[in-house]
Amino acid sequence: MLRLDGVTVSFGGVRALDAVDLEVADHETVCVLGPSGSGKSTLLRVVAGLQQPDAGRVWLAGWDRTHVPPHKRGVGLMFQDHQLFPQRDVEGNVAFGLRMRHAARAESAERVTELLEMVGLPSAHRRAVATLSGGEQQRVALARALAPQPDLLMLDEPLGQLDRVLRERLVVELRALFDRLGSTVLAVTHDQGEAFVLADRVVVMNEGRIAQAGTPLEVWQKPASEFVARFLGFDNIVEATVHGDSADTPWGKIPVPEGTQAGPCKLLVRPTGLRTTSVEDGLPCTVEARTFRGGDAAAVTLLLQPRHGPRLEASCALREAPEAGTSIGVAFDEKEVVRIST
């Protein structure tokens, strides 16, 4: 459906996008994930035609659309802060795209009703957009973007401004909706949880380049670089040298999964890959802090200062968690140790 070839955009010497190649297949949902300033929003603006690339091409459904103005591209874009038209009511907003396509009035009214029902706002037709809550505006913006049945739907931080509970519910609803409609979706977000739930495929961006692309599971299991790993929230990363089934690290020798490529590299140890032991049996550490995270597993994050080597983050269940200030030992679980290519 969508293909970008070497798209480059610079703003005053800064590369917002640097030779980006990206493909989105029909009925696929792709999430672009990255910190702010990584070029995600620029990417959407290029696809929508709101930003001309300095170099590269944009293909939509097999056609080169690089120089087609936005109103002729047939893509939908849901803006970060919704950008609902303040002077129109809900129906006027949702019907806007249909009117631009000269849809018959009756047909358009029917479609608006159908969409408002779908996004869970039946009979909101006449409400002024200023009276809507953030979550409702969000739904109207989605209905407005969906109304003209765009070939490609793009979402810019779709759930950015909503509170956590609403966000977690809506992201599941969105996923179900896109599955049902068979939409092709390109979304950008800085929230990995959102991306992992929503996407068939995740693209991690950093400083205008694609750092990694793959299914959520692949990206989570095998981060392609230290940047990706840290962005996903993993901080136990050290220089290491792999020999066979173990590796030399500042923490001492730790086991690695079978078949790990030998040689110098970086190693990631997931917080769940650390078990607490007696001081004698493992790497001796002092517990610097413990943070209760809540959640289904009642997890606790421990910040450990090993006798040698950088600090470690470990995750354990509440009832096993040692108090801050105590001395413990930790052992490494080889299944949760990952070699990072560079």
């Binding site: 709101l50 936005p70 109103h71 939908g76 950008q83 303040p86 129109r88 795209g97 631009m100």
Partner: peptide, 24 residues
Amino acid sequence: RLREAAAVLGASPFRAWREVDLPL
């Protein structure tokens, strides 16, 4: 970005001006 929103929804620049700027 209101104009951009209109453009993405299929409004030509003139149409966007008429539909977005003018009423405001």
